[in-house]
Nucleic acid binder design. Structure first.
Length: 724
RNA sequence: GCGGGAUUAGCUCAGUUGGUUAGAGCGCUUAGCUUACACCUAAGAUGCCGGGGGUUCGAGUCCCUCAUCCCGCACCA
């Protein structure tokens, strides 16, 4: 027996070597898998941000998916797990911009587009290596030969093709719409990139002619020449829609027009409001309904425009108090409510205060009808009229995309129903450039500059989720008709965290539905988030971060994986507990010692039937759990079996009265149970099981040379699963 | 406001379709270096399964209700 069994299991010595063995085998690539594999099973890894560092969330996610993919590989499926990274445009650019500002004291405009992009790419490249190596250390059996990066050449072709086809279909349009403008990042962001924070502020009641209006934002009120109330509000029935009133306002006398609209909540405040269509979505919609004028009050940097008169050029924060002072002097301030709780919208990435603005942007029309060419989505026939929203709804409703977690399915529909057109242009530089060219009034959509003089390229880049939405098929070679696409799309499973259900999952369904007439995945299994022991998110400000690599070095990858998986039902949050990881490290050592005990004897005799039957029952039960994604139960069952049945009972019974001997009738059984337990445990603890397996095989070979036992050397990775 | 989830042992959590004495890890108590393993072994303590009501032969599991907590989404001027 190998002398390494004389010391406790050493993951540090083992894991790198075993991972290399796997990589060299090529078995992570489905093309190299042995045997007849008619059925495919594929997953795409939710691509982590290139600039990120592995955190426990990634560790948990990769442990889950790796366990599933290893199980399916052993079950004889043609398994593909595709790795990739995302550029996360806004997050990455703002990070590098900060670094440049700090180091060189230059803003992005001073540095220039090309140089900034160069720096970002350099930075991205460096962090890419870090995160990929960290993912490998988790034991992830990803097919690295199919690695994709959101901004690489193949993905660029996919993005441009997708844009062009949707443009030609009229589903991508350019228009003036109210968008979420981030004055700090100098870009628009999507609704999903906004974080709402509760803040205490003041709420003012102002005299607006005969009315009292409430506002938390007096600085937007300069342009307010419409006063709106509910048509059914009896208090104001004397005022008619369209009626004009002369009244005194901030900078003198104005003419106000009465508008009646049902969007007004009669219960709120006085039931009367003035509107600022340029800087508020609800107001914008009211203005659109009645064909009202819209005026810009605040510029792109959060400063007041000349319309504000004496307040022009001021930042909104400082203007607010001054405007109130003036109103008070003029006797227009009715009262001030202190401690008013209002929700402030901030940009998740930059922390900037969102200022809605009307801007010309590119949008994906989600409610516009178009004729779908080929559809394999149940309920949508090829050649019929449909909308992107219908694709999103029917894909899930029909069960073509299974979302077995009831709660998440409901919130998916809830989200779809409230969906607006998706703004896809971003005023930053890092990302896929919008493939559109302008010449005067002419607009041309193509990746290449059109012939002729005077064409100017669109300055903006696409929302990072536009390229992410193509991920399931852009990683398989689309728009080319590849064999991969044929074999592995729709993918079998997607397993992201719940925070990107709307951002990513629904948009993949949209894109795949439009471009392929197909769903992007057959099943969605949302997993929970890893939190600290108190249930809080990991964050820099709380300084409660746990570095998975540190855990790996302390306890080994196998222990970390099991510690994250056991006791966590799919979809529930994981509260991270280091003592649990330590417990599974002890388990790894236990298994190590079982192997040591068994391997110290030569295999002989027959397998005990009742032990075999008992094990087969366990294997069957565990397989059902695996197939139903009850990984936490499967993991716990094999754990309990190995420790409390195999070690505590069967091995104890097998000990002979003679010191250091095993009853001969047990030996074959112990070999059988060890071998097959290793198989059942392998998806969860790949390293130690493979390591012991290799020893087992080496011993067999030794026997083989004496002509006593036939066997083949192989990797546990591709061993057949011990149950039907 | 709309929607989702949680409440089980001191702590962190399991408990799939309702079915015999409710489980795991860590922690705790006691005894043991027993020749695979002290990263261990053996024995043990600890639970009106949030409160109340209901369905059922039978409920931690299904229904209603109350309470507390958490999380999404939307938003009020």
């Amino acid at each position: 027996m190998n002398t390494k069994f004389l010391t406790p299991y050493n993951p540090q010595e083992t894991e790198g070597r075993i991972y290399k063995l796997w990589e060299e085998s090529g078995f992570f690539n489905p093309d190299n898998l042995p045997g007849e594999r008619s059925e495919s099973f594929s997953i795409v890894l939710p691509p982590p941000n290139v600039t990120g560092v592995l955190h426990l969330g990634h560790a948990y996610e990769s442990a889950l998916q790796d366990t599933i993919i290893r199980f399916q590989r052993m079950r004889g499926k043609k398994t593909l797990w595709t790795p990739g990274t995302d550029s996360a445009a806004i997050a990455t650019q703002s990070k590098v911009e900060k670094m440049v500002q700090k180091k060189e004291g230059l803003s992005r405009h001073e540095l220039g587009r090309e140089k900034l992009i160069e720096k970002i790419e350099q930075f991205a490249k460096e962090s890419e290596d870090t995160i990929l190596n960290q993912i490998k250390r988790m034991g992830a059996s990803l097919d690295w030969s199919r690695y994709a990066y959101a901004l690489d050449d193949k993905r660029k072709v996919a993005v441009e093709t997708a844009f062009q086809r949707m443009f030609e279909e009229g589903l991508i349009y350019r228009g003036h719409r109210i968008v979420n403008w981030d004055p700090k990042g100098q870009t628009t962001i999507s609704d999903d990139e906004i974080a709402h924070e509760e803040k205490l502020g003041k709420f003012y009641y102002l005299k607006y002619g005969p009315f009292i209006i409430g506002t938390a934002r007096p600085e937007t009120k300069f342009g307010d020449k419409y006063v709106v109330m509910h048509p059914g509000d009896k208090r104001y029935s004397q005022y008619k829609h369209g009626e004009k009133l002369e009244l005194e306002w901030i900078n003198g006398s104005i003419t106000a027009t009465v508008i009646k609209d049902e969007a007004i909540d009669m219960e709120f405040g006085t039931g009367v409001m003035t509107i600022t269509p340029w800087h508020d979505r609800t107001d914008f919609e009211i203005a659109e309904r009645h064909g009202l004028e819209k005026e810009q009050i605040i510029d792109k940097y959060g400063r007041l425009l000349p319309i504000a008169g004496e307040f022009a050029e001021m930042k909104i924060g400082e203007a607010r108090e001054k405007i109130i002072e003036k109103l008070e002097k003029k006797g227009l301030l009715e009262k001030t409510e202190e401690n008013y709780v209002h929700n402030i919208a901030t940009a998740e990435r930059t922390g900037g205060l969102i200022e809605p603005q009307i801007m010309e942007q590119w949008f994906v029309a989600v409610d516009k009808e178009f004729k779908i060419k080929n559809s394999r989505i149940p309920g949508i026939e090829s050649g019929s009229l449909t909308t992107l929203k219908k694709i999103m709804r029917l894909s899930v409703e029909s069960g073509a995309v299974e979302m077995p977690q009831e709660g998440f399915r409901k919130s998916y529909f809830n989200w779809i129903d409230n969906l607006h057109d998706w703004c896809i242009s971003r005023q930053i530089w890092f990302g896929h450039r919008i493939p559109v060219w302008y010449k005067g009034e002419e607009v041309h959509c193509d990746s290449k500059k059109p012939n002729g003089e005077g064409w100017v390229e669109d300055e903006d880049v696409l929302d990072t989720w536009f390229s992410s939405a193509l991920w399931t098929f852009s990683t398989l070679g689309w728009p080319e008709k590849t064999r991969d696409l044929e074999s592995f799309h729709p993918t079998s499973l997607i397993s992201p965290g719940y925070e990107i259900l709307p951002l990513w999952i629904s948009r993949m369904i949209l894109m795949s539905g439009f471009h392929l007439g197909q769903v992007p995945f057959k099943k969605v299994m949302i997993h929970g988030m890893v939190r600290d022991k108190e249930g809080r998110k990991f964050s820099k400000s709380l300084d409660n971060g746990v570095d998975p690599i540190e855990m790996i070095e302390k306890y080994g990858t196998d222990a970390l994986r099991l510690g994250l998986l056991v006791g966590t039902a799919y979809g529930n949050d994981v509260k991270f507990d280091e003592s649990k990881i330590r417990g599974y490290k002890n388990f790894a050592n236990k298994l190590w010692n079982i192997a040591r005990f068994v391997l110290s004897r030569e295999k002989e005799g027959d397998i005990k039937k009742e032990l075999q039957e008992e094990f087969d029952l366990l294997a069957k039960d565990l397989t059902e759990d695996m197939e139903s994604y009850r990984l936490h139960l499967a993991a716990e069952k094999i754990y309990t079996y190995i420790w409390h049945r195999l070690a505590d009972e069967i091995i104890e019974e097998s000990k002979s009265e003679t010191k250091g001997e095993i009853k001969s009738e047990y030996i074959a059984s112990l070999y059988y149970l060890l071998e097959n337990s290793l198989k059942l445990l392998h998806p969860f603890m790949p390293f130690i099981t493979e390591e012991i397996w290799q020893e087992l095989k080496a011993k067999m070979r030794a026997l083989d040379s004496r002509g006593l036992q036939e066997t083949a050397d192989s990797l546990l990775v591709i061993e057949p699963w011990p149950a039907k």
